[in-house]
């Protein structure tokens, strides 16, 4: 069986001419360090991250590293700051005028909140999928093409659209109605469209803020399968209320909870960050155990 040029036989290796291959981070964000020889390179290093909305502190004391090509789940009760935190990872909190981020969010060694960082550039490299499917009121095709067009790409759009839809396992369902409005799709399809739309920009990281909370179990399973495929190429962080989901898909889990400060204010904080298996079987912290076993939250 030595047919070296049969693409179906070879494992996908980075081919710079293949439009499906995401360019390494170093190409698009300046000054990324060379890949370490270590088995897991860290995409993010967070140190003492905290977020304020006006005078209110929403979350504090978040320190952990997110490994590349892993799925990291953020779990915890409502109000624990997990959605707030994930929105720090691509400067999405910039859209809230009163939000302020403290501490350090390093992405491949670069401080995302540094003075010379362009938030728009950050969001090109770090895509996001939201809680409620939010396709644009345009055709399926135009939804996918939106990102590449924003980046100034004009040629080869058909191929980009097809590739993105294939990667989101949506191509076979929609290939005959690409020009129809995206709102004609089911909720689960819409959410996979939003994932495809994010993939079309060729990001390095995909942030998912409760991507399945508005979906039925079958659509949820489809998206979970998709995530497991996507982590071969992308680094993924997901906020979820569904502990089984975190257990099923993630490699590592961050558990957040709501703490009361001395003056009685409720502040979210990180309790535990460990490999998912450990968090769900033998967590370090008692509060984590209570939460994952359903005794609290």
């Amino acid at each position: 069986m030595s047919t070296p040029h049969d693409p179906s036989q070879t494992t996908p290796v980075a081919d710079p001419t293949d439009p499906r291959t995401p360019a390494p981070a170093s190409v698009r964000l300046a000054a990324a360090p060379a890949a370490a020889a270590a088995p897991k390179e860290m995409a993010y290093r967070l140190k003492d991250v905290e977020v304020h909305y006006g005078d209110v502190k929403a979350v504090q004391g978040v320190t952990f590293d997110l490994a590349q090509n892993e799925i990291t789940a953020f779990i915890g009760p409502s109000g624990c700051g997990k959605s707030t935190l994930i929105r720090c990872l691509n400067r999405m909190n910039d859209l809230v005028p009163s939000a302020r981020v403290g501490g350090q969010v390093l992405y491949h060694g670069q401080d995302l909140y540094g003075d010379d960082i362009d938030a728009v550039q950050v969001r090109k490299v770090i895509g996001m999928v939201f809680q409620k499917p939010n396709p644009f009121p345009k055709s399926i095709y135009d939804n996918i093409a939106f990102g590449p067009r924003v980046l100034g790409r004009k040629k080869g759009m058909d191929e980009i659209v097809e590739t993105a839809l294939r990667r989101a396992s949506l191509w076979d369902e929609v290939k005959d109605r690409l020009k129809t409005n995206a709102f004609g799709m089911s909720g689960g399809q819409q959410q996979r469209l939003c994932i495809a739309r994010a993939l079309a920009v060729e990001p390095d990281v995909i942030l998912m803020d409760e991507p399945c909370s508005a979906l039925d179990p079958i659509s949820t399973a489809a998206i979970e399968d998709l995530m497991l495929e996507l982590k071969e190429r992308y680094t993924i962080a997901i906020v979820t209320h569904n502990m089984q989901q975190a257990a099923r898909v993630s490699d590592r889990t961050a558990f957040f909870t709501v703490a009361k400060s001395d003056d009685g204010k409720r502040i979210g904080e990180l309790v535990e960050f460990n490999p998912t298996e450990k968090v769900f079987s033998n967590p370090d912290d008692e509060r984590t155990e209570q939460y994952v076993t359903g005794k609290f939250g």
């Binding site: 999405m92 895509g127 990102g147």
Partner: peptide, 9 residues
């Protein structure tokens, strides 16, 4: 948010 999330200015 969807558009910002795709890197639109």
């Amino acid at each position: 948010e969807g558009a910002f999330g795709l890197g639109a200015a």
